[in-house]
Design a binder for these strands. Structure first.
Length: 584
RNA sequence: GCGCCCGUAGCUCAGCUGGAUAGAGCGUCGGACUUCGAAUCCGCAGGUCGCAGGUUCGAAUCCUGCCGGGCGUACCA
């Protein structure tokens, strides 16, 4: 989308290249030119710092600014509409004063006519991106760590889509292995044929309880572990009783987990199961062995030597021919590329596995997969508690369902204590949406690379820099727009107060923010943009009349601006997987 | 030991590819509801941007070293 500063950028570049003559090519000038917003709007609406050109042009930056400003103003002379205005040198900066009325009308009307699509872009048009996230085990329910993973994966996927990419969200369910057998064994041992229904328990929690039960048992009885291993062997040999139990318990686990997905707005286009993919990759490794990319030792183990790129030697296939984590990841990557050839494959996986992905990508490269360079590990930090790490053994793991229940309960209390029951359609449904807003915003406001501290009390709060703050703004404005309809378009009219102009500016910069956040795979950029915008709007709303403005033209204009900002907020909240509420 | 990541206000975090005076929220203290919804708004206080060098017109941002913390360095996943 063409931005309102585009004509000015062109004019500044023209002026610079006139000053530079043949000495500097235009591409260099364009790369060097920065566009900023002056710290104080009295200084102008757009700023171009001339510092970098001082070196290139061997001139005083303030002098350059004066020359450029003069010729830019001349170039703009006679222009009308959004391209009109003048430039002024302020020290080493060229500052532009726009025809705000014209620019504002263009920006607002674009947001009004685009409606809920405002913010969708085409920067990634034609790109096919697969994104893998969540990847739960079928021996226990989701916990806080999964919630961060899910929030990130879902949000990044939505942002990439908004930026124009074709996105395929995939899940890989870890439904096999010794840890799965442990809960199965404990159930066979202590379950007495009970079921989630008979116990009145959510089915994934039911399964998880047996995993915990196993852990306790293992401590008391040294015979437990060998039996778990024997069960894994039986499973691998296709023992029918074991498979029947496995199918039943997996179904319980997955149904429960899917319920949490539905609840949190997480979805996938394709689900892979490790039980179906774990043996993939073996043939690929053997092919690589034939091609001399890998080697076999005297025990029959297949290795890859990555010491030439400062990594280690890694085992790809055990001597008995069985697969490892790495083996199957090689297989699933290849399978995915066959299923749906992608331009990029993003793995949303905790940063502890950085090394694993380095190795994985390099092995695929050595197997001659030309698409190996398009693989990307979106590593994110761990979620800690105020007193340290979550430890499943110490029972400090924060359960996903419990946390959301707790949040929803508090939100419902809040609704009641404010006497809002009559104003919302359904207290519990609204409370649930507020809970998700609090949770998702909390998880996404921190950039992915950083470890974060989950402070229960803080995350349970609904005021300040939180998801519910954003929802609250939406609810108030929705309520206002129910009473007074916004116009379909606004006339050319100068914004009267500073907040109006700031909102126009934020409206204009929003589509690019979506693209930047998507390309950086960083929802926190978008989150803080929305929060800052909401703050500006809150102040505007508080200090100035909108729907109750006496002057009908002013009222219409402000209602139009409000609607436009709401379109943007709704779009942005959706990208963060935060539900919009009409009333709360 | 080696490798990767992080270190910004008392706490939790922003700060885009280096750019004009480093920002929020929570917490403390104080103010604003006969006015479009007070889950809001406004104000006060709070900083050697871990430390030391370097690069440059200019560094929280880039480079080097050190300190502190996390993670990794499995024929676990």
């Amino acid at each position: 989308m063409k931005q309102y500063w585009t004509p000015w950028k062109t004019r500044v570049l023209d002026a610079l290249s006139a000053v530079a003559g043949d000495a500097v090519d235009e591409a260099t000038l364009e790369e060097t030119l920065l566009i900023e917003t002056p710290p104080d709007t009295a200084k102008g609406d757009i700023a171009f710092p001339m510092f970098p050109f001082a070196r290139i042009l061997r001139k005083n930056p303030a002098q350059i600014a004066q020359d450029v400003a003069a010729s830019v103003t001349t170039a703009a002379d006679g222009a009308e509409g959004p391209a009109a205005g003048r430039a002024e040198a302020q020290g080493p900066y060229v500052n532009v004063f726009l025809d705000r009325a014209a620019v504002a009308a263009e920006v607002i009307n674009r947001a009004l006519s685009d409606g809920e699509r405002y913010g969708n872009g085409s920067a990634l048009d034609g790109q096919r991106i697969t994104i893998e996230f969540s990847c739960p085990n079928t021996n226990k329910p989701l916990h806080l760590g999964h919630l961060r993973n899910d929030a990130l994966g879902e949000s990044v996927a939505r942002m990439l889509r908004a930026a124009g990419a074709e996105v395929r969200k995939v899940n890989l369910i870890n439904d096999r292995g010794i840890h799965i057998c442990k809960s199965m064994l404990a159930y066979r041992e202590f379950g007495n044929g009970s079921t989630p229904e008979s116990e009145g328990k959510k089915s994934d929690h039911f399964v998880g309880d047996y995993y915990v039960r196993y852990a306790r048992w293992e401590k008391e009885d040294s015979g437990a572990e060998p039996r778990a291993r024997a069960m894994l062997k039986a499973w691998e040999d296709g023992d029918s009783d074991t498979h029947e139990l496995w199918l039943t318990m997996n179904r319980w686990a997955i149904e429960g987990i899917e319920e949490t997905y539905r609840r949190t707005g997480i979805s996938f286009d394709e689900t892979y199961y490790e039980s179906q993919t774990y043996s993939l990759g073996r043939d690929e490794i053997l092919k690589g062995l034939d091609d001399g990319v890998f080697y076999r030792d005297e025990k029959g183990t297949v290795w890859v030597d990555l010491t030439d790129i400062d990594l280690d030697k890694k085992v790809l296939l055990r001597g008995d021919g069985t697969s490892l984590y790495l083996t199957q990841d090689i297989g699933t990557a290849i399978r995915r590329h066959e299923d749906w050839p992608f331009d990029r494959l993003i793995y949303v996986v905790a940063s502890e596995q950085r090394y694993h992905f380095q190795v994985l990508f390099e092995v695929l490269r050595r197997l001659g997969k030309e698409w190996a360079d398009s693989l990307y590990h979106l590593a994110y930090g761990m979620v800690n508690l105020p007193d340290g790490k979550m430890k499943s053994r110490e029972g400090t793991v924060v359960d996903a369902d419990d946390l959301i229940d707790r949040l929803a309960e508090l939100a419902a209390e809040e609704i009641r204590s404010k006497g809002r029951e009559e104003h919302v359609d359904d207290v519990d449904e609204t409370a649930e949406k507020i809970a998700l807003a609090a949770l998702h915003y909390y998880l996404l406001q921190t950039g992915p690379v950083k470890d974060m501290v989950f402070n229960p009390e803080e995350s349970l709060s609904f005021s300040g820099n939180t998801g519910p703050y954003l929802q609250y703004l939406g609810a108030r404005v929705s309520s206002m727009l129910r009473k007074q309809n916004a116009p379909e378009a606004v006339p050319v009219r100068a914004p009267e107060v500073e907040e109006e102009w700031q909102l126009v500016h934020r409206l204009a910069a929003y589509p690019q923010t979506v693209i930047d956040s998507a390309e950086a795979h960083n929802p926190s950029m978008l989150a803080s943009y929305l929060y800052d915008t909401a703050k500006v709007f809150s102040r505007f709303y508080h200090d100035h009349p909108i729907a109750v403005a006496k002057d009908p033209q002013q009222r219409e204009y402000r209602l139009g601006l409000s609607r436009a900002v709401m379109n943007m907020m709704q779009h942005g909240l959706t990208l963060l997987n935060i539900p919009f509420v009409e009333a709360m």
